[in-house]
């Protein structure tokens, strides 16, 4: 009797998502260029099947505050990576010019504006949480925040709910 062995088909391994990997991202900055890294990484993690929770605190609150989220800004001031003379950053109007340029560049690579990006993250299964202390300091309430924010919670609550998670502080 002849036995023939059929080699199994070469199939990509999509199963490493079931390991219960969890990612916590703390967003503490409200500059346009500091808002995107957290959003992009959250979106990427969700696309890889990683449970993702975001916590917005201090200046990061601007990312989820309705009156501010469309109007985050970028300044070259103090940022040597722009490779421009630092004096230019202080000229009135430069922040607006630099912001418009960066927004245009972000749109050109198909990346959405902040509010729409938050919607996409939530549609992908991500969780958004707001910091209690920041809300109190800035006199903001739930109604002032993006609809998809699940609630305003204390830092301890966030630490508790991200037990075992990998953590990014931005």
């Amino acid at each position: 009797m002849i036995e023939t062995e059929v080699a199994p088909a070469l199939v990509p391994n999509f199963d490493d998502v079931t390991t219960g990997r969890k990612l916590a991202i703390i967003c503490s900055k409200g500059n346009l260029d500091m808002a995107y890294p957290g959003l992009v990484l959250a979106n990427a993690a969700l696309g890889e099947g990683v449970e993702t929770l975001m916590f917005f605190t201090f200046w990061g609150f601007d990312i989820i505050t309705k009156s501010r989220m469309n109007d985050l800004k970028f300044t070259p001031l103090g940022n040597t990576a722009t490779h421009m003379p630092q004096g230019i950053g202080g000229i009135p109007g430069i922040t607006a010019v630099a912001t418009a340029k960066m927004k245009k560049d972000i749109a050109a690579v198909g990346v959405p504006e902040v509010p729409e990006f938050l919607d996409q993250i939530v549609a992908s299964g991500g969780h958004l949480w707001a910091c209690r202390m920041s809300a109190d300091m800035m006199h903001l309430e739930r109604a002032d925040l993006h609809e998809a924010v699940e609630g305003i919670i204390s830092a301890s609550d966030f630490i508790e709910m991200t037990d075992g998670a990998q953590l990014l502080f931005i």
Partner: peptide, 14 residues
């Protein structure tokens, strides 16, 4: 997006 995550669970894009 929500539908894509239901149709192709885990890693929809890949």
């Amino acid at each position: 997006t929500k539908d894509l995550f239901q149709l192709f669970p885990g890693k929809p894009a890949k």
